[in-house]
Amino acid sequence: MKQSEKVGIVMSCIGNVIWFIFGGLFGWIGWMVAGILWSITIIGLPIGLQCFKIATMSLAPFGKEVVYEHTNTSFLLNILWIILSGFWLAVGHLISAVILCITIIGIPFAGQSLKLAQVSFMPFGARIERVR
């Protein structure tokens, strides 16, 4: 492992710890509540499972990226998702991003919040990958 990779891993870890303390927990709770509510019905179970996947990213977003693979099914599920749940999660992440942009130190965290806001609008067809 190269020295630059080690530094990147350490910086991601530090960023995730600070993120967790200053707001990541609230985003995680929002995604978990949405996942639990969707999982109550059998029809909503695939949507709930996607919420749980994104909740893990919401808890520690540094060092992760979202890759999209669009299909017709994911398009229809995203439309249903935006109407029923995604809008409010996206608004929460956008408000968080605006608050975090107040200070210079908060700008990288605002970027992570904006990444989560984008996923809030289009979670289906999204795959979370670790940045190398």
Rank of each mutant, 00 (worst) to 15 (best):
Q3Y: 00
Q3M: 06
S4H: 14
K6V: 09
V7E: 14
I9P: 00
M11S: 07
I14H: 06
I14F: 12
G15S: 02
V17F: 05
V17R: 06
V17P: 01
V17M: 05
I18H: 03
W19K: 05
W19P: 10
F20Q: 15
F20A: 15
G24D: 02
L25Q: 02
W28E: 14
W31G: 07
W31M: 13
W31C: 10
M32V: 06
V33C: 04
A34N: 04
I36T: 11
S39T: 02
I40S: 09
I42R: 13
I47A: 15
G48H: 01
L49A: 15
Q50P: 03
K53T: 08
K53C: 09
I54H: 08
I54F: 06
A55S: 15
T56S: 11
S58H: 08
F62M: 05
F62I: 10
G63F: 03
K64M: 08
E65V: 11
E65K: 15
V66I: 15
V66E: 14
Y68W: 11
T73C: 11
S74T: 13
S74G: 03
F75M: 13
L77E: 00
L77Y: 07
N78D: 10
I79A: 12
W81Y: 01
I82N: 11
I83L: 13
I83G: 01
L84F: 08
G86I: 00
F87L: 14
F87H: 09
W88P: 03
L89Y: 05
L89W: 04
V91I: 14
G92C: 07
H93G: 02
L94M: 02
L94Y: 05
L94V: 01
V98F: 13
I99N: 04
I99R: 08
C101F: 04
C101A: 13
I102D: 03
T103L: 06
I104A: 09
I105G: 03
I105M: 06
A110T: 07
A110C: 07
A110S: 07
G111V: 01
K115Y: 00
L116V: 00
A117F: 05
A117S: 09
S120F: 01
S120G: 15
S120K: 05
F121L: 15
P123R: 08
F124Q: 13
G125T: 02
G125N: 06
R130G: 09
V131Y: 07
R132H: 14
